[in-house]
Every structure is written in C-alpha cells, then in structure tokens.
Amino acid sequence: MLRYIARRILIMIPTLLITSALIFTVMQLPPSDYFETYVAEMAAQGEKADMSRVEFLKKEYGFDKPLIERYFLWVTGFVQGDFGYSFEYEMPVSDVVGERLALTVLVSFCTILMTWIIAFPIGIYSATHQYSWADYGLTFIGLLGIAVPHFLLALIFMYFANVWFGLSIGGLMDPIYFNQPWSWAKVQSVLAHLWIPVLIIGAGGTGSMVRAIRANLLDELQKQYYVTAKAKGLPPGKALVKYPLRMSLNFFVSHIGDVLPSIVSGSELTAVVLSLQTTGPLLLRALQSQDMYLAGSFLLFLSCLTVVGVLISDILLGFLDPRIRLQGGRTK
C-alpha cells in the first residue's frame, strides 16, 4: 500500500509539469498581452495610458525575457507560494483571491454536502424500487435538475423573489459588510444569503448524483453475492447496506477527485448572475482581460487540486476495496 501511494505521488510530478507548460502556452497564445489590451482599452476610452508604467511592469515581470525563462520564473514562484501579480487589480494574486477563496470554499462545501445528503437516500430508494411510480417521479425531478442550466435557475429565483417578496437575493452578504473585517453580524448575513446559491448550484449536481447512485446500485443489486447475503438470513436492509451499497461506493469515492477542484472554481456563470463574491467571476474576468498571472496561477492551482483530489480518491479506494489494494501491481 505504501509503495502504491509513493508511486502515485511520483506520477503527480510529471503530470503537473506538463499541465503547467500547457497552461502557460495557452496563456501566451493570444496575439496580444494584458498591456496591449490595456493600452487599447484606454485608447478606446480616449485616454492615454501611462506608457512608462507599462514599460516598468513589462520589465518587472520579465516580459522582455525569452518565453522559457518566464515559464520557469512563474513555476518556481508558484512552488514558493508566489503566485504572481495581477495587473488588473494591481496587487499580488494571493491577495486578490484571498477572501473570495474562503467564501467559495464555504459555498461549494455546503453545496456538496447538500448534494450528498439529498442524493443518497433518493438514489437508494430509486434503485430498490426500480420502475415504481416514486422512482419515475424522482427520476423526472432529477432530470429536470440536470437539464435546467444553473444560471437560468438563478435568474428565475431572482425574478420571483423580487416580484413576489420584493427581495434581492443576490450576493453572499449584505453589501454593507463588503471589505469589512469579519464579525458575528457578517457571519449571520453570510449564512442568511448562503442557502440560495447552495440550492441553485446543488440542483444539477443532486440530479446527476441520484442517477449515478441509482445506476451503480442497480448493477450491484443483480450480483450473486447479494443473493448469498440474503440466503444467509440477513435482514434485507442490512444486507443492502453491507454488500451492494458498499460496492457502489467505489464510484462515489472516485468522484471525490472531481469534487476538490470544483470546491474552488464553483459555478462561474451562476456566481456571475447571483453576483457572488466567489472566485468564479474572478477567473472569468481574468481570462477576458488577459490578466495572465491571475488566470494562469488560478488554473494551475485548479490542476493541483485535481491531481491531489485524484490521489485522495485513489488512496481511499485502496482502503475501501481490497482488490485495488492487493492487486494494484498486477495486470492481466
């Protein structure tokens, strides 16, 4: 098992190197860079950009150096915790992301928790009562959740909340707390605002989760070992939880790998519509304005989380399923 984990960690290094090179290349691909976009934007507004400042920044960030060198500067900085400088916000990337990251993690964490709490019982019920009316009904609602885009759901929510209750449900806190230090009142305000984005963002995830649990569990319910368990005299509920459900968890655990990056990236579009102070809109804006260090570091950060998430899933799977643990090295 230790060798297995060590090997997985070693594999992560080349993966991340390749990913970072890819991200860096993509960031350089557009014909212009942030400064040109900035100058052009200024010119379009009839103003003159401060060329000396632009020159200074270009030098400071090594834009006069060859590509390869810049790439290494960026990657080594990243490893040391220096994520670069956001040109647009004129502060280090880590400061820009700061509080937003905490809020994003909060929203995403609650969303995922809600998804699991709702999806598991429904999925299990659907699988054990396949083709019953309840199964059809739950399936229909779940599909509705998958099919309706989040941002549309957000718009509908906002519209009716405004029309019927005269409420503005956007944001993650009352505007008066923006840029305020954390206080009890601010926390309360966040909690009061939290449930709407959680509900909206969670809708689709819950739907697909229900489908996945149902499908996986249905597969396992056909298996002979479930009959064996019942033939032993186990009560149906206990037999279900101990054998087929346990096996269908494999899918769920391997899914955790995808969850980690989504905790940070959140749902960009929905966050924009609901004007949430999360990292999603930030990434969008950074990509639009070619704020390359902000966008690049963000993307690389997501890649790291993905790789770490997959590692965590793999280790968990190893613990959960002896077939992976004991046969890991063997191939047919």
């Binding site: 002979q224 019942k230 032993k232 005299g233 186990l234 149906p236 054998y243 077939r323």
Partner: peptide, 27 residues
C-alpha cells in the same frame, strides 16, 4: 422477509450457488 423465514434461511437451510466467482463479496 419475515423473521421466521430469515431464521430458516442460512440457519436451518443453507445454500450454495453455481458461480463461486461472484457468490462471495470481494470487499
């Protein structure tokens, strides 16, 4: 699935199946 039947099943009547590969839980 009543308790009487469950007592018989596995207790007084045992059963083995054709497929030894899949009759046991692998985990």
């Amino acid at each position: 699935d009543g308790s009487k039947m469950r007592k018989l099943r596995g207790g007084r009547i045992g059963m083995i199946f054709q497929e030894p590969m899949s009759s046991l839980s692998p985990v």
